[in-house]
Design a binder for these strands. Sequence first.
DNA 1: CTATGTAAACAAC
DNA 2: GTTGTTTACATAG
Length: 756
Amino acid sequence: MKTSPRRPLILKRRRLPLPVQNAPGETSEAEPKKAPAQQEPGQAQASKEVAESNSCKFPAGIKIINHPTMPDTQVVAVPNNANIQSIITALTAKGKESGSSGPNKFILISCGGAPTHPPGPQPQAQTSNDPNRTKVITDTLGPKPAARDVNLPRPPGALPGQRWESCGMWSGGQRAGGEAAGCTLDNSLTNIQWLGKMSSDGLGSCSIKQEVEEKENHHLEQSQVKVEEPPGASASWQDSMSERPPYSYMAMIQFAINSTERKRMTLKDIYTWIEDHFPYFKHIAKPGWKNSIRHNLSLHDMFVRETSANGKVSFWTIHPSANRFLTLDQVFKQQKRPNPELRRNVTIKTELPLGARRKMKPLLPRVSSYLVPIQFPVNQSLVLQPSVKVPLPLAASLMSSELARHSKRVRIAPKVLLADEGIAPLPTTGPVKEEELLLGEGLSPLLPVQSIKEEEIQPGEETPHLGRPIKVESPPLEEWPSPSPSVKEELSRSWEDSSHSPTPRPKKSYSGLKSPARCVSEMLVIKRRERREMSRSRRKQHLLPPCLDEPELLFSEGPGTSRQAPELTLPAESSEPASQLGYSQEEGGPFKTPRKETLPISSTPSKSVLPMTPESWRLTPPAKGEGLDFSPVRTPQSAFGPLPDSLGLTDLSTTPLKSIPLFDSPRELLNSEPFDLTSDPFRSCSPSDMEVPKPGPPEPQVASLSANRSLTEGLVLDTMNDSLSKILLDISFPGLEEDPLGPDSVSWAQFIPELR
DNA sequence: CTATGTAAACAAC
DNA sequence: GTTGTTTACATAG
């Protein structure tokens, strides 16, 4: 662990301040955050004067007493008949009394009433004082942060945000970054919930489900949910507390960020959010988890760091093209909701972790993928099970789960061609990118989607499905704009390393040659290592370049949560931005395997430099086996409508198959041309290559861009594991060929009613 | 092989 | 000390 001899030196890096560019609102992190306003007040006062005496009584018979053994913890005895509101009121009051320094953990227990459920297993760690009666509903409030979510439900009557938030404050206020608090909404899910799901099986929770559905109210709902807690859940609750959540760090980070209105969060807030929602991290996990969080933030391109205007505060955001706006709520719902059967599966899986306990199995590791429901008839041979009998709408969700089982899923991904032509504005490559990013985000904080520059074009990839493949293959790395190695640097590593060079290699340009060159003997020795390295080095996980990426689905929020409307791609926007980033061709190929490649210069550049290609996330399909997918599955309806969807299918990731171009319209597909989406913005690739004329109709470029972008929907098969993620289905529509209309005119939707 | 988790070395503040 | 990046390793699937 310690010293790693091999570790190359890290060159110095300097941080690029992101220019805030246009971002209008963005500017300060100051943001309009309402937060300050709200928060402050509460907090201000928070004098801890009163401090907690040992016990205080509050309306409705609620009592709050110090936990006998746990510091900073209070036990809140709630009469069965107490209503949520009163609980909140009591806690709020208590919080105010205590101030930020006060207790930050509360254990709610019911008293007086029927013990609903027996205690159940006890938790190791935590709170249990009395196992017996405890029906804990509680949660821990973050030290600072807060309470907000806590289990407390937002009282129905309560003011929406305000009160609620204020509560949060009470416990500590949000920190500067503040955004965290932002949303009232999302935060909602607490441990319990996930917990519940884990154990769930039992959850009868009808209530929950229902609630979920209606999102808007969700405040209430959630609140209730929490409070009430499904029986089953409660039993295991404690356990859950101590258990590691089934989510990957990447997923949790996304949840955290998406829980804010602005969809951005400071590192600290991310920590806090996670601790608040998953007590495991607060109490049990080793301190190294924070390191892991940071590691994930840096590693995945989907996480983009923005610096506030003044440069003092850094916020982490999710790249718009990658952000599905998943929130814990959504995930939760999705997990639960699917039909029972499915659920079962889910549960089962989830349970495993419990039992097994070993490491964790991330349920959602891949948050990114989006499934779109589909049905498609075509060859079912493909993969799907015939199963699809479900009504489409459901199907989507179901599918995901079902498929998941099998490990594959089918999805249709609507894509848009965006970029195309891109215009590639980006003359400046490297350095700039970051900025670009900002822009995008800045533009639409809320709706990130838009701009996105990203849509990246794809470079390569393509599969020959039809026609010819495009050429793009591998862009020479070198070509890239130097500064940033962009993404792919990964590639290189392998070669280099073997190297003997003790010194760090500055960039390695490709020594590709070399490798072959190596002596055999050496090879032997090295081989193994090399291999590893290849796999190992993972620099950032970028978005895959070429591909269009997965569809960014637009999901409306449907299910649940929040308000966010993720509409990812708006037609308009998509148009240009797309080109930008890029595709990095990085790899050129469809293969992503990282090799090393050259990195220019400093190692650091990572994200900033990269053209962002969203890939990683995109690619990543939902959790592997897990069944759930987060993907916001939106019903196609909304998605398809007028808006173009994103495309996304291809990714370069590994499997060659994957890359599949999307067609705008069926017609196009038929014609199958090479898709080139790729225009490389940077031109790193030789244009010639890239340039292949687009398929058939040269689309009206710009002008029609947006229009053109029409949605393309593609059917794709996704295997659960990324690896093969997508396969295009071959579909033929009779008659289409001729479609006089523009490509746009025909959309998959037409053929597939369900889509609409 | 890939994705993920962890630990750690470093750099820049 | 915190925040970010990047390597290296380990491991599950």
